[in-house]
Design a protein around this nucleic acid. Structure first.
Lengths: 155, 155
DNA sequence: GGTTAATTAGTGTATATACACATATCTATG
DNA sequence: CATAGATATGTGTATATACACTAATTAACC
């Protein structure tokens, strides 16, 4: 008997480490983020910042809430994540003329140049993980991740 | 021509948002973490804290570096993530008697009780995403994530 | 046995994340 | 058109994350 009285006996906890979706997702996220961070380093752009530059470019001009929605990121988190980019002058965040509540994010020329500098490095990082995992497996995983992101937000 | 002169033309940036492994992994990670956080809330245990309790339980007594390695987490991050758990009295972190450099993490009785309280909620969260995705798909994804975590750390 | 290497860990600083709460603006309704 | 409800945003606070640097201890080598 011993341990078996507990919900969280040893075997259970070892099993959780291998089966928990959240744990494994966060772990992989840390690992991959570190890889991208290292490769992106020469460009002076951090992983999240690269993402924000790309999404800004793809959606500009875009309201903070709308952008946060696409990123599945809390609105207030995005506000704060944009600060370093504003400070560097890579993006501008200005009040909309139509709706004075809304603040619109845009990529600046400087931000565009920085993104151009980071892009080849991103390709390198992407290629490395792609080669290591195999194309079909990576594509499959990204598809799964997309589903998780949309489901988790609505379940 | 117009935009095509840039490496980061519109279509490229839109494509990156859909194909970047890092972006999609982080996005899914945020989404799933929010789901688990909401469900775990009544237990007073945050997602990362739940993970630390489980891993501590599975490995105790365990050195910080060893635990960080398993978590694919920077050692200094783990040191700081353990602080709230120490403050709550859920884990103890004490110098090893064998090696005075090493500090060993252990689950306390209080931590065990808290973990017992959180476990049913974790099962609920796990079940929800499992049902939503389908067992085989979730298992497959977790397998892929495990490979990513180990590969990314060594590439 | 003493000096150097390697190992283990913490701090300073900066970014990333989100909840609770507060503020400003807009829209719809009477 | 005044006001109530909805919408868009920012701040305070706490946790999560990692790099650069530093300190202490151990192991290895001569």
């Amino acid at each position: 008997m011993k341990e078996k009285n507990h919900l969280c006996d040893l075997n259970t906890c070892r099993e959780i480490g291998q089966s928990c979706a959240m744990f494994n997702l966060r772990k992989a996220s840390r690992a991959l983020t570190q890889l991208y961070e290292e490769i992106l380093k020469p460009s002076g752009v951090l992983p999240t910042q690269f993402t924000l530059l790309v999404v800004t470019r793809a959606m500009e001009p875009v309201a903070i809430s709308r952008m946060a929605e696409v990123l599945v990121m809390d609105r207030t988190t995005l506000t704060r994540n944009l600060k370093p980019l504003e400070r560097e002058g890579w993006v501008s965040v200005r009040q909309s003329s139509q709706d004075k509540r809304t603040r619109e994010v845009r990529l600046t020329k400087k931000g565009m140049r920085r993104l151009e500098r980071a892009l080849p490095l991103w390709r390198e990082a992407q290629q490395r993980i792609r080669t290591s995992l195999g194309e079909s497996r990576l594509d499959r995983m990204i598809e799964d991740l997309t589903v998780v992101a949309s489901r988790a937000a609505t379940i």
